[in-house]
């Protein structure tokens, strides 16, 4: 009983690995987009009023409620019907980015509201403007509190790039499926690609742990060690 067919890896390993570029593009593109717009969304939800706040909440709620696969197919196959055509890679980044945005806004929002209000009062009583309050207190503390959640979202985005298989982006998973279909051997290419995802997420969390230690401050964001 042989689980791993070494010959398949020798012959087709490079084919699978050739998908890594697209996987990284989708990961960083989607996560980066999610961070920028997620921060804006969180900002709107925490500090916005009336309609701004409600629109932000509606965007967040709806994007969190739609499966990523549905979102991606909507963008790739649905938008052209409205005259907006995006490439598979663009569609995948947009879909992953939108979903990541919704979750990251939630992570950032809870981090902002976790800052004890007494510190806000202390900053105001020193005479800080709202902008100074945000840059000296809220942003640095919220970032530290949010860091573990953001790293977790990064690894989710990384693994979910595999859904771009559905619209034909040649990333890691798509390549491994192609190899499986050619060799009629599913076990080896899928275990191989699974281990590549494992190595990437594992190294991400190792780097993250280093970051937690580097940025950790006694009494702040203790949860990051847990």
């Amino acid at each position: 009983m042989v689980f791993i067919n070494i010959k398949v890896i020798q012959d087709y390993g490079p084919v699978i690995l050739s998908g890594i570029g697209n996987t990284l593009i989708l990961t960083f593109g989607g996560f980066g987009m999610g961070l920028v717009f997620g921060a804006l969304l969180a900002f709107a939800q925490c500090f916005g009023r009336g309609i701004v706040r409600r629109v932000a909440t509606a965007i967040e709620e709806s994007l969190r409620s739609i499966p990523l696969l549905v979102l991606m197919l909507l963008i790739f196959f649905g938008l052209p019907e409205l005259g907006i055509s995006l490439s598979p890679v663009q569609s995948a980044i947009l879909a992953i980015g939108l979903r990541s945005m919704a979750y990251q806004s939630q992570i950032l929002r809870s981090a902002i509201s976790a800052i004890p209000y007494g510190q806000v009062e202390a900053a105001l009583s020193l005479g800080m403007t709202k902008a100074q309050l945000f840059s000296t207190l809220i942003a640095p503390q919220a970032f530290r509190i949010a860091l573990p959640g953001l790293v977790n979202q990064f690894t989710i985005d990384l693994k979910d790039t595999s859904i771009a298989y559905a619209i034909g982006v040649s990333e890691l998973f798509t390549q491994s499926i192609h190899v499986a279909q050619v060799t009629l051997n599913y076990l080896t290419p899928l275990l191989f690609v699974g281990s590549i995802y494992f190595v990437m997420t594992f190294s991400t969390s190792t780097i993250a742990n280093y970051l937690y230690r580097k940025f950790s401050i006694p009494g702040l964001g203790e949860a990051s060690h847990g």
Binding site: P116, Q119, E121, A122, A123, G127, M128, T136, P140, R144
Partner: peptide, 20 residues
Amino acid sequence: IHRIRQRIGFVFQSFNLFLH
């Protein structure tokens, strides 16, 4: 108001130091 507050020191029951 933020400029007026500079002229008024405030000490809180729960200290409220900036933790970071």
